[in-house]
Amino acid sequence: MHLISSGGTVGRGGGPQALAILSQPPKTINQYLRVTIQGEVMEQDFGLPAMALRTLETYTTSVLKVDLSRPTEVKDTWRALMDEMSEVSRTHYRSIVFQDDRFVDYFRAATPETELGRLNLGSRPQKRKAGGVETLRAIPWVFAWTQTRLHLPVWLGLGSALGHTISDAEKITVLREMYREWPFLRSFFDLIQMVLAKADPRISSYYDEKLVLDAGHREFGVELRKLLQETVENVLDVSEQKALLDKDPVQQRALNNRREWLNPLNLVQVEALKRLREQARQGVEVDPNERKGLADALIISMKGLSSGLQNTG
């Protein structure tokens, strides 16, 4: 019996049910499947009888398709390249998240991480204990970056790994072969594309402009957005597309249509965060009704963006 996690953020291994099942390693499904449903997608997958039926049909169809399909042989050259890319990605990720002194302060200032306690994310606390970013639980860690539309936990390190591979003509040929023939890698890139299509550097820079007071930290944000753009370009190079999700026009159109409704929520959230933080810094007594109004606006914007973007925690 094989276990997968259904739904939830791509940064923590979540994704569409069918894509997750069809991309599993050979001989791991074997007619049976055990599924863990992420809380954030419980309602959308099982909230109504018709939704529940469709979800169960998706599981059943995918399991049958895996059992009836000939498994893809994973070549040694593919494994070797994946190991090499993994090491490059890990090294770059840790150099920014754990070794750059600016990271934690920027994260606290540029995202609503410190205000997430206002939103009920479940029974588990926002942090395990006092400390830096390593003490933060996975859900608010991803959630905070999603709110600012940077989605950093999903792509950070990937651009460097792809850039390392693209610079070598032989390796990029192998990687494109892997993308075409290996369901696991193809599903990985498809999920990454979906999240990258939801990212918006302009929105992220607006958070920095209004909320990040230190000039050095604002420059750090510029550096992160450059890395995001490099990642997008490298993903398009490997998948041989002109724009993200060109091979999935239905989802591409859906995200484009949704974007104009999401942007105003980000603007409201930034303004609420700015006013609440200014009040806290000034230490003056504030009208309780005004503060409650700002807190309500913040919570509503968080919930609206979470619903619109999905893959949030």
Results as ranks from 00 to 15, higher is better:
Y32N: 10
Y32D: 08
L33P: 00
L33F: 00
R34C: 10
R34M: 10
V35K: 00
V35Q: 00
V35C: 00
V35I: 15
T36V: 11
T36C: 01
T36F: 03
T36D: 07
I37F: 01
Q38S: 05
Q38Y: 03
Q38G: 02
Q38C: 04
G39N: 09
G39M: 05
E40M: 03
V41H: 00
M42R: 12
M42A: 13
M42D: 05
E43Y: 15
E43K: 11
Q44G: 01
Q44S: 14
Q44M: 10
F46V: 09
F46K: 07
G47F: 07
G47N: 12
G47L: 11
G47H: 06
L48V: 07
L48T: 14
P49S: 03
P49L: 03
P49Q: 03
P49R: 04
P49W: 02
P49H: 04
A50D: 13
A50Y: 11
M51Q: 15
M51K: 15
M51I: 08
M51V: 07
M51N: 13
L53M: 05
L53S: 06
R54H: 05
T55V: 09
T55K: 05
L56E: 04
L56T: 08
L56G: 01
L56D: 01
E57A: 11
T58I: 09
T58Y: 00
T58L: 01
T58Q: 06
Y59V: 13
Y59S: 02
Y59R: 04
T60E: 09
T60H: 03
T61F: 01
T61R: 09
S62K: 01
V63I: 15
V63E: 08
L64M: 14
L64V: 12
L64A: 10
K65W: 07
V66C: 06
D67F: 04
D67Y: 07
D67I: 04
D67L: 07
L68W: 11
L68T: 13
S69R: 10
R70Y: 09
R70C: 03
R70I: 13
P71Y: 10
P71F: 07
P71N: 08
P71E: 11
T72S: 10
E73L: 12
E73T: 14
V74R: 08
K75Q: 15
K75T: 14
K75L: 14
K75C: 04
D76I: 12
T77F: 03
T77D: 13
T77E: 14
W78L: 06
W78S: 10
W78F: 06
W78K: 07
R79D: 05
R79S: 12
R79P: 00
R79M: 07
R79Q: 15
A80I: 12
A80H: 04
A80D: 11
A80N: 06
A80L: 12
L81N: 01
L81V: 12
M82F: 08
D83R: 13
E84C: 02
E84S: 06
M85Q: 15
M85L: 12
S86T: 14
S86G: 06
E87T: 14
E87N: 09
E87G: 02
E87F: 05
V88N: 01
V88P: 00
S89N: 10
R90L: 10
T91H: 01
T91L: 03
T91F: 00
H92L: 05
H92T: 11
Y93V: 04
Y93T: 09
Y93K: 08
R94I: 15
I96M: 02
I96E: 03
